[in-house]
Design a protein around this nucleic acid. Structure first.
Length: 197
DNA sequence: CAGCAGATTGACT
DNA sequence: GTCAATCTGCTGC
């Protein structure tokens, strides 16, 4: 079951970030089917959030996607190398987004290994925002792609989540006090989530 | 295992 | 020119 549009349109981006845990991120790129269970996310609360690209209504060709209506992908290049995958939430003109930080490889593991140039499966296959994009074949070409398309989507396989850990976001020190907001969410005890406190 | 630098490109001053 | 929502491999303990 693909998630319905209204899942993404809710006004509380933190709630969406938590609800995405345990859902499945699926891609079918060049006919190759791969899927992973989302085990770590991060919320970015738009114009009031110093860590967000849309802080203080910043608008550019890159951030334009954030202002679209929820339910599409926001993908951008970080450090010139990594393609980071986000889910746009809320209504048009409200630039909220959830960064997917880690997935547990489920389907098409051999394809992911090939994309990552790894011989065997281990916990590092898709345990960071850059590596999971590479494993799933996600690149900036998919920016603005609708998450109900047949290229990339998120589905519910009726898995229940026991416990969620909230902690401060990482890699956003420049956001000063806002970096401490507990907007990073992980499934407790999942070895597939990134390392951290 | 911790710490650090290099990679590499687009956005912004 | 500077910096960024990162990852990897190398160093040294």
């Amino acid at each position: 079951m693909k998630l319905a549009k209204k899942f993404y349109l809710r006004s509380d981006v933190v709630e969406v970030a938590k609800d995405l845990l345990g859902k499945f991120l699926v891609t079918q790129i060049d006919g190759l089917y791969t899927a992973g269970k989302i085990v770590e996310t991060e919320a970015y609360e738009g114009v009031i959030d110093k860590a967000s690209h849309a802080y203080n209504h910043k608008f550019s060709r890159r951030t334009k996607t954030l202002y679209e209506s929820g339910g599409i992908a926001y993908i951008y290049l970080c450090y010139g190398i990594h393609h980071l995958f986000n889910v746009v939430t809320n209504n048009e003109q409200i630039p909220h987004a959830v960064l997917v930080r880690a997935v547990e490889p489920i389907d098409g593991i051999d394809i992911m290994l090939q994309r990552r140039n790894k011989p065997i499966l281990n916990y590092t296959l898709a345990s960071g925002p850059g590596t999971l994009s590479q494993a799933l074949g996600i690149s900036v070409q998919l920016d603005q792609t609708d998450l109900s398309s047949d290229l990339i989507w998120i589905e519910d396989r009726n898995e229940r989540i026991d416990h969620i850990i909230a902690s401060p976001r990482v890699g956003v020190d420049y956001a000063q006090d806002h970096a401490l907001w507990p907007y990073r969410f992980r499934i407790k005890n999942s070895p597939w989530a990134g390392r951290g406190k």
